[in-house]
Amino acid sequence: MNDLSYLDRLEAESIHIIREAAAEASKPVMLYSIGKDSSVMLHLAMKAFHPAKLPFPVMHVDTGWKFREMITFRDETAKRLGLNLIVYKNPEGAAKGINPFIHGSKLHTDIMKTDALKQALNMYGFDMIFGGARRDEEKSRAKERIFSFRDKNHRWDPKNQRPELWSHYNTKLNTGESMRVFPLSNWTELDVWFYILREKIPVVPLYLAKERPVADVDGVLIMADDERMPPQYEITMQSVRFRTLGCYPLTGAVPSEACTLEQVIEEMMVSTLSERQGRIIDFDQSGAMEKKKTEGYF
């Protein structure tokens, strides 16, 4: 027992959570954001049900503004692992041409991410939804359960969470209610990277440094991923990488020369800035994440 590494223990805990949710749910789904945490979660799920295929679909909520490399990676991954991939885009938002450069990060996230997610969940009737969030990411996440209850409107009530004791997860749901399940709750950013390295899990190349076209947008380095980048910004080629991945206009790059995973991890270990620092939505307002979560953002 003492020979087990810390990562083995985390892996065992996550697999236990994934199996428990899959067994208790009537219609489970795994949210797939294409990022490194999602990749680890997916890898763990594949292990949990090996040699069978995943007993649930994998869903990507596409805002229409994801990095192009993410979309390529997503489709390749689905093919490689034989996933039942669902891609959902908010049709009204897409029709209205919601644009983070014009409408701002808050409206874009509300409509293309939060609303889109709710629409998709309602449409398919999913009752247990896996997400790759970690408790070390952000203060309000630190208080979230592993099996996190959502009411009929997908709202999280931080004051009325079900106590979660031992590993006896309360999965009881009434009609319309749902549960977000976070198998990576107890992983830290470093654990995720070490596990990716140990298990040789493929990740989107955007995590590695490369010469990329970027512009300084209000103090954040934004990559010009396509022609929708407004022309007023001065684009230069810089060696950058991304610590988190999301919509390209909302995801800050960091200058870096680390072009292998090992170098990225070494760089990260001496980093003095948290990974969410590159995310614009957290800066919107104080307590931003908590507000988004109570509204139903993942």
């Binding site: 408790r135 070390d136 630190a142 208080k143 931080p158 004051k159 107890n186 830290t188």
Partner: peptide, 8 residues
């Protein structure tokens, strides 16, 4: 503090 928080 109103709930169990996890720190690493």
């Amino acid at each position: 503090t109103i709930d169990v928080a996890h720190r690493y």
